[in-house]
Amino acid sequence: MSVLVLAEHNNDKLNEATRKAITAACLISKPVHVIVVGSECENVAKVTSGISGVDKVMLADDPIYKNMLSETTSELLLDLIKDYDFLVAAASTNGKNILPRVAASIDVSQISEIISVIDDKTFQRPIYAGNAIATIETKTEKNVITIRTTAFETAPESDKKAEIERINPKTNPQLSVFIEEKVSSSERPELTSAGIIVSGGRGMQSGDNFKLLESVADKLGAAVGASRAAVDAGFVPNEYQVGQTGKVVAPELYIAVGISGAIQHLAGMKDSKVIVAINKDEEAPIFEVADYGLIADLFEAVPEFDKELEKLQK
């Protein structure tokens, strides 16, 4: 029973999410092969071949795969899946975009965002924004599965290197054309892999005020996140959103500032190890999940927090 994992990367670096997907794949079955689809991404394949648990890496390196468009990538996976029992990917926007297209083409249902592997036919996944956990059993031979990365460990390095096999591209169905991408580059860690996250909500009042959080984040080596309300109000870009329909995170420390704690926000962060909430409303539901709640005006508390952290650094 073999597993094929779709790697997540930007043609240059392998995304951490892939290492989590590999861990999950190893729990499902063996051997585990990883497919790297992209353009000029040989480096990614090399890094992948050194990850523990990977038995083989396949590399489909061609300009048509540069942006990993769904129609083009699923065509390739559809050809490869013939030789595998499982197709697995991290539940990133890429994984979520591509895998269901493959699943439907081979007439199977996808099992989305699993958080645990019970056996190779039985999995657990959150439903209703994580307010219930369903145990799902599949009746099909082949299965297509996405992984909620916060639920699995990062696969470590191995001292061996797996073989890398180059595979030929498939024809491009040319159903869609890439036009442009606006990807923000930040010095700060990425939300989904950060150890500490400082998030702001509507209570921040403006994008400018997010500087208060950035200053704290820089002292803690943290990523900056946001609630939907903060994104909708235009304080920060969409990729900051944490929640049911944004990013799901589980850092060591999550600091929620001026966030009320709606079900949809909690869905994205309540598995964090330690939660801090700073809110002036003592009734705010965020306090129900916070380990350390501070009832205070954020415009006083955050600058003070920042100052104290600065002292601590000295």
Binding site: S109, A134, I136, E137, K139, K270, V276, F287, Y292, L294
Partner: peptide, 30 residues
């Protein structure tokens, strides 16, 4: 259906509700 729901459970409950009085206390606790 190709998938069967075997069981639906509540997720483990998070015990929150802890409070701190000041930033100083917060930093000390963290």
């Amino acid at each position: 259906p190709k998938l069967v729901i075997k069981k639906v459970e509540e997720p483990p409950k998070r015990i929150g509700g802890g409070k701190v009085e000041s930033i100083e206390e917060l930093i000390d606790k963290l």
